[in-house]
Amino acid sequence: MPRKPKPPRERAARALCTYSGNPENTMFEGRPQWESHLSEVDVVLKAALTPEEWERVKEEGP
């Protein structure tokens, strides 16, 4: 059974984590390291997407 694709925010946060030289799933303050990049991802996506697109992406999850 194929895996469900990760939401765009999570994929972007994981990419930033890797780009920063950090392993995505290493725990940091009790959460996966990639989650610490979500605020940066949100700033970029809000600037790049229309308000409607941003709302849709937010609803898809982390």
Results as ranks from 00 to 15, higher is better:
L49Y: 05
E40M: 12
F28W: 09
G21S: 07
E24C: 05
V41D: 01
D42M: 05
A13N: 11
L38G: 07
L16Y: 09
E40W: 10
E40C: 09
S39Q: 13
Y19S: 04
W34C: 02
L16Q: 04
R31I: 01
E35A: 06
K46C: 05
A47V: 02
E53M: 13
A12P: 07
E52N: 10
E24L: 00
L49N: 03
E55S: 13
P32Y: 03
N25K: 05
A13V: 11
S39G: 10
E10F: 03
S20P: 00
P51D: 10
L38I: 15
D42E: 15
E10V: 02
T50D: 08
A13G: 07
G30S: 06
P23M: 04
E59S: 14
C17K: 00
G30L: 07
E40L: 15
G30Y: 00
T50M: 09
T26D: 11
N22S: 08
E40P: 01
G21H: 05
A15C: 03
R14S: 03
M27D: 09
S20F: 12
E59K: 14
E24I: 02
E10W: 03
E35S: 07
V43E: 12
C17Q: 07
E10Q: 15
C17N: 09
V41N: 03
E55C: 00
T26Y: 10
S36A: 11
K46N: 09
E55H: 06
F28H: 05
R14M: 13
N25Y: 11
N22Y: 11
T26N: 08
T26Q: 14
P23I: 08
T50E: 09
G30W: 05
T26M: 12
E40K: 15
E10S: 13
V43R: 15
S36G: 05
T18K: 08
A15N: 07
A47K: 14
T26I: 03
P32E: 04
R56G: 05
H37V: 01
H37R: 10
E35Y: 02
F28T: 04
L38E: 14
A13P: 04
K58D: 05
V57G: 08
T18W: 10
E52L: 08
A47W: 03
L45S: 02
A15Y: 07
N25V: 01
K58S: 04
E55T: 13
K46M: 07
V43S: 11
A47P: 05
D42Q: 11
S20I: 00
W54K: 12
E29D: 15
G30I: 08
F28G: 00
V41M: 07
E40R: 15
P32N: 03
A15Q: 08
G30A: 10
K58H: 03
K46L: 13
